Amino acid sequence: MPNESSTRILLTGGQGKTSSRIAQLLQNQGVLARRAGRSLPKPGDQQTGESVRFDWFDGSNHDQILQDVHAVYLIAPPSMNPEEVMIPFIRRAIDASVRRYVLLSSASIPEDGPVFGAVHRYLHEHVPEWAVLRPSYFMQNFTDPGHGHGNSLRQSGHLYTATGDGKIGFVDAEDIAAVGFHALTDKEPPNRELIITGPESLTYDDVAKVIRSVTGLNAAHIHITPEQLTERHMATGLPESYAKNLAEMDIRIRLDGLEDQVTDTVLRVTGREPRSLEQFISEHKSSFLTKVLS
């Protein structure tokens, strides 16, 4: 990694779950971060690193944002074809002499898959240093009131999915960020994909049981149809095509075991075990006790 004080790491999705955590890890190590996103910190908010306004669909300031950058963390926009804007940006970054690129993808989506697949493949084929993080579903989905699960847990105590008895290797965003930090800063680039999971694979019935056990909240997993799930996703503001894709992933989790896996990536890359769901819920117990009554 370059030592020049003028170089920095660009974090797209700068205020998001993983970018914000990576920014803190970079600051702890004295590495400069430029956090780029559609939203900026509010006055008075504690902020880590430099913040700039960034929109994938408006390239007017992209060259400026890439100045003095040697590595980029890539968070895709909510689109079925993010490569349409991401690949031109990566080309600009290559022209600006950026060497390392780390993409946040999904354990459900391989290099030849939809959505993130084309960007994954482009990095593999065209850049000198790269990694693709492929995490399972975030544990933070259960504590974030802006996420469908976090919101429904607070409103009704319920989780709504079309996964049936399908299992998922839920992972803490802190562990994803730790792997991402190493992918961005280690002297030797990974030049590979990294599938990131927690220590166990669980059904949503299992998740509800853990929440009940740890918090006392009468949580339950409500099994719904893919069509009903699509409607719920669209109600949060997601485009119909993207909402349908997420619902289809639930079907594949139920029928194909799409997310039923556990890897040693967190331990191998960071030297520590990933956090379990029970540990995560225990550490965030207070967020489950702020239930909003209907």
Score class of each variant (00 low, 15 high):
residue 1 M to F: 08
residue 103 L to E: 05
residue 118 A to Y: 02
residue 76 A to R: 03
residue 192 R to T: 15
residue 188 E to Q: 15
residue 232 R to F: 12
residue 229 L to C: 05
residue 180 G to M: 07
residue 246 L to H: 05
residue 127 V to E: 11
residue 39 S to E: 03
residue 113 G to I: 01
residue 180 G to F: 04
residue 255 L to G: 06
residue 138 F to K: 05
residue 173 A to P: 11
residue 148 G to R: 14
residue 197 T to V: 06
residue 287 S to P: 04
residue 286 S to T: 15
residue 95 D to A: 13
residue 270 T to G: 15
residue 97 S to L: 04
residue 116 F to I: 14
residue 41 P to T: 08
residue 242 Y to N: 06
residue 267 L to S: 13
residue 169 G to S: 12
residue 86 M to F: 07
residue 253 I to F: 08
residue 214 V to E: 01
residue 251 I to T: 15
residue 176 I to K: 02
residue 88 P to R: 04
residue 127 V to S: 11
residue 110 P to Q: 07
residue 140 Q to A: 13
residue 193 E to P: 06
residue 268 R to K: 14
residue 215 T to K: 04
residue 59 G to N: 10
residue 99 R to Q: 12
residue 278 E to C: 06
residue 85 V to E: 00
residue 153 L to K: 05
residue 292 V to A: 13
residue 67 Q to F: 11
residue 182 H to F: 00
residue 76 A to W: 00
residue 183 A to H: 09
residue 274 P to D: 11
residue 181 F to H: 02
residue 26 L to W: 01
residue 135 P to G: 05
residue 212 R to I: 07
residue 78 P to Q: 10
residue 187 K to W: 06
residue 17 K to T: 10
residue 180 G to P: 02
residue 135 P to D: 04
residue 288 F to C: 08
residue 69 V to T: 14
residue 291 K to W: 05
residue 80 M to G: 09
residue 163 T to K: 11
residue 248 E to S: 14
residue 284 H to E: 09
residue 115 V to D: 02
residue 118 A to E: 11
residue 220 A to I: 02
residue 262 V to M: 10
residue 249 M to K: 05
residue 262 V to Q: 07
residue 87 I to A: 11
residue 294 S to V: 12
residue 135 P to K: 02
residue 32 L to E: 03
residue 261 Q to H: 11
residue 91 R to P: 00
residue 194 L to T: 10
residue 48 T to I: 12
residue 291 K to G: 04
residue 291 K to Y: 11
residue 61 N to F: 04
residue 291 K to P: 01
residue 148 G to Y: 12
residue 272 R to P: 03
residue 104 L to T: 06
residue 46 Q to T: 14
residue 291 K to F: 12
residue 172 D to L: 11
residue 54 F to R: 05
residue 244 K to T: 02
residue 59 G to K: 12
residue 261 Q to G: 07
residue 26 L to D: 00
residue 293 L to H: 15
residue 214 V to D: 05
residue 172 D to A: 15
residue 93 A to G: 09
residue 121 R to V: 06
residue 250 D to A: 13
residue 192 R to D: 11
residue 81 N to C: 08
residue 197 T to I: 08
residue 292 V to L: 14
residue 177 A to P: 03
residue 286 S to H: 15
residue 59 G to P: 09
residue 167 K to F: 13
residue 3 N to C: 08
residue 74 L to M: 04
residue 178 A to G: 10
residue 7 T to P: 05
residue 38 R to A: 06
residue 69 V to G: 06
residue 147 H to R: 10
residue 1 M to D: 04
residue 263 T to I: 07
residue 290 T to G: 01
residue 90 I to K: 06
residue 201 S to D: 14
residue 34 R to S: 11
residue 204 Y to H: 13
residue 77 P to L: 02
residue 231 E to Y: 02
residue 69 V to W: 09
residue 84 E to M: 13
residue 217 L to G: 01
